[in-house]
Amino acid sequence: MRLGCVDGEAVLIEDGRYAGLAEPSAQRFATPGQVYGDWSGFLSWASEDHDLKWRDLDAALLQAPVPSPGQVFGVGLNYHDHLEENGQAGTRPLPLTFTKFPSCVTGPYDAVEIPVDGVDYEVEVVLVIGAYADRVPAERAWEHIAGLTVGQDLSARGVQQGGQLSLAKSYRGFAPIGPWVTTPDELPNRDALDLRCWVNGELLQDGTTAKMVHDIPELIAFLSTITPLRPGDIVFTGTPAGVGFFREPQLFLAPGDVVRSEVTGLGVMENRCVAPAAAGSYDEAFRALAPRPRAKH
């Protein structure tokens, strides 16, 4: 099953068509928040036959499939090849966890502002929580996951190096997700998903979740040890090698660039980079935090 969002309404997506859930038989699941807030009830409803109105899908209509998550977690250095390019090959630390502010979530085809130099791309698999998870063991983690989607954990590297990790990852639009949420039963091998990122047509990242340091069940077990995960929360699970910061020369995004992100079985996003729409009082202070060259190992 694939679930998306059009004009704020939760929609089912199937074979190039979509059906809205704001119809009489489904009104209690009219929005994504209502769907994930009662995931077991939604699955029960979806198992029955319903006379829904299906329309041809124009992908440009799709918004972030989870537009207002309660919590947004991210995990860094979670692929072996990314550890290697960071000079930490062979290590297996605890998951390096951070948060992104929910207000930075945007849609799969929305434009993304590039407010400073040093903005990096990071294609990721994103988890959507469907059942309250508190101190969940890894072997039961999938029971708490409603589905998966594609994401970009965009990062302002200079701001990050300046000690503002959460802010560096939470500028407007720095968390594109989509194009829809796919339930795990749709995936032949949910533990080995291929993910790729192109910038202006050039393939820069090409990895697989089979090479994660901490796999998806481990991440749920780890996070839920510290804090409960609630329905509708999302988790960015890490990015493979190839990010701009570790390239020589370094490669960062600029207005006019187009970022294409794909995860096999989950779909494709495409986001155009644009100049900021307005000025902020601290723009110059943040622009002064230019990315420093990475340390040599």
Rank of each mutant, 00 (worst) to 15 (best):
S170G: 01
L203D: 08
T182Q: 11
S170F: 00
D206S: 10
L203P: 06
L193G: 11
L203G: 07
R157S: 02
Q161P: 00
G163N: 08
Q205M: 07
V213N: 01
K169N: 04
C197A: 13
G158D: 04
T149I: 12
L154A: 06
L148S: 10
V213I: 06
K169T: 05
H214Q: 11
R157G: 02
C197W: 02
V150G: 09
A210E: 12
I177F: 09
I177D: 09
G151A: 09
T149K: 09
L148E: 10
C197S: 08
L165T: 14
V199F: 04
P188L: 04
G201A: 00
T182R: 09
A175D: 05
R172S: 09
V213S: 01
D185Q: 15
F174P: 00
P176L: 07
L204R: 10
D191G: 13
G173V: 00
A175I: 05
S166D: 10
A168R: 03
W198P: 00
A192P: 03
L195E: 07
L154R: 04
V159N: 02
Q161H: 01
W198I: 02
A175P: 05
A156N: 02
G173Y: 00
W180I: 15
I216L: 15
W198M: 01
L148Y: 13
D185H: 14
S155N: 07
A168M: 05
D194A: 11
I177R: 08
D206T: 06
Q164V: 05
D153T: 07
V181C: 11
D194C: 07
M212A: 08
P179D: 13
E186I: 08
I216Y: 13
I216N: 11
T149N: 11
V181H: 09
L204G: 03
T182D: 11
L193D: 11
R190M: 14
T182Y: 06
N189L: 10
